[in-house]
Structure formats: C-alpha cells, structure tokens
C-alpha cells in the first residue's frame, strides 16, 4: 500500500483538499450544476425534442385517419414510440460537446470514479428530456383521444421509463462519441435495447385503459430502471474510456 508516501504528498500539497469523502459529492454536484447551466443557456437543445414529439404525434392522424376511435386504440403505443424517438434525438449531444472541447478528457482524469460522474450527466439528460416529455405527453394524449383514466399512468410510465432510456442510451452515446458520423449508428445500437422498456411502458398505459395490471407493468419498469442504474454507469465509463483514446 502506498499509504505512507501518499500521505506525505498530500500533506506537502498544502493540505488544500477537504475531506476526501466529500470530494465526490462536490464533484457530482458541480457537474450537475454545470450541465444544467449550459442547457439553460441553450434552450433550443431542450425545446427541440419536445417540438419533435408534438410534430411526430401530429403526423399520425394525418397519415392514418382522424377517426377518434381508431386513434384511441393506438394512442398508448404511438405516444410511447414518439416519446422514445424524441429522447433518442438528443442523445447524440450528451457527450459530444464535452468530447469536442476536451472537457471529457478532463472528466476522465478527475480523481473520482467515472461511473458516478457519467451518472450525473445522464441525470441531467433525463431531467431536461425524459421528464419534460413525460409532462407533455398527456396534452398530446388529449389530441389522440387517449381514453380517460390513463393520463396519469402515461406520464408516470414515461417518467420512469425514460430514465432507463437515458441510461441505456448513454452507453450508445459514449460508444459513438468519438465517431464523426455517430448519429445514425447510435440509433441502430440503442433502439433494439429500448424494446423491453417500450413493451412495459406502453403496456402500462394499455393496462390502465383496460382496467388492471398497470401496477405490475410499473413494477417491472422500476426493476428495469434499477438494473440499468446498477450496470449502465460502468458500461458508460468503459465506453467513454474507449472513445477518448480512439
């Protein structure tokens, strides 16, 4: 163990650091704040996926039929698929600007576990993409004549499911961030992995329309999120390390 020597260096280094334990919390908090500040200054990046969501939903009645009964039957799936695609849209930029300006390199060199720092960035993505999509979905649900009683479930399932989508998607974003034309490839990698979340998310809404089983769907969505929370940060960290050295 390097204890003795590292102590020596630490002391010599002007005792400038606080407790080592609080260091990680400070770093994660600072990263969260930094990313939120950035997006607050570039509101377009936050609004565009929402506009895209509304646009895609508008296409369906035009492309299929304005018949409210028909729309009501396909509304849960449509809303979920459109929300999923909108969340996908903003994924490519998750690490892109950090990669381009060199701050990703610095993030990797921070004396903190990279999975936690990556998780902070994913949390920001969910806060500014998944959550707004979930809040907006009920409004679009009205436009698709989504049956009453399923609106709350739509928002809850999307809020819960989109957290998994952000986590899984971040793996793909981290893998492709070093590639100049990573956007389409990213969708190709990530969409198959989204299918379980889509099944249980859209299933939850459908179940709440039919009247039972929605809780089971939500429970599974929660389990998927727990699993993603446990495993995805490590995959994201590994992928970032690969991309930065490509």
């Amino acid at each position: 163990m390097p204890r003795g020597e590292s102590r020596l260096i630490d002391d010599a280094r002007l005792a400038s650091r606080g407790e080592p334990r609080t260091g990680l919390a400070v770093a994660v908090w600072a990263t969260l704040k930094r990313d939120l500040t950035q997006l607050a200054r570039r509101r377009g990046d936050v609004l565009n996926p929402l506009v895209f969501f509304a646009l895609v939903i508008t296409l369906f009645p035009i492309g299929i039929s304005p018949d409210p009964e028909l729309l009501a039957t396909i509304a849960p799936g449509l809303l979920w698929v459109a929300a999923l695609l909108s969340a996908l849209l903003s994924l490519d930029s998750l690490f892109r600007s950090d990669f381009d300006d060199g701050s990703l390199e610095q993030l990797l060199l921070a004396p903190h576990p990279l999975p936690m720092l990556g998780l902070a960035k994913v949390a920001v993505h969910w806060l500014l993409t998944g959550l707004p999509l979930a809040l907006m979905a009920p409004v679009l649900g009205i436009m698709l004549s989504l049956p009453a009683g399923s609106y709350l479930m739509l928002a809850v399932s999307l809020a819960l499911g989109s957290a998994s989508l952000s986590l899984i998607g971040a793996i793909g974003a981290a893998l492709t961030v070093g590639l100049s034309r990573g956007g389409v490839l990213l969708s190709l990698l990530v969409l198959p992995l989204y299918i379980p979340v889509l099944i249980f998310g859209a299933g939850a809404v459908q179940a709440s329309i039919l009247g039972d089983g929605a809780a089971a769907h939500l429970a599974i969505l929660g389990a998927l999120l727990a699993l993603a929370l446990m495993l995805a940060p490590w995959a994201i960290a590994a992928a970032l390390r690969i991309s930065i050295n490509g």
Binding site: L175, T176, L179, L185, S243, N245, G246
Partner: peptide, 23 residues
C-alpha cells in the same frame, strides 16, 4: 456496424466487446 465505424482497430475491438456484453 460499430466495429466497422472505427478507424482504429484497437478501439473498434474494445467498443464491439462492450456492446456485445451490453447486448
């Protein structure tokens, strides 16, 4: 597709390995 997208073969190998594990 991911393996083919990298210009450096070392990176391609690692990226494809990570994706296969995730898959």
């Amino acid at each position: 597709a991911l393996r083919g997208a990298f210009t450096s073969r070392d990176s391609a190998s690692r990226a494809a390995s990570v994706l296969a594990m995730v898959g």
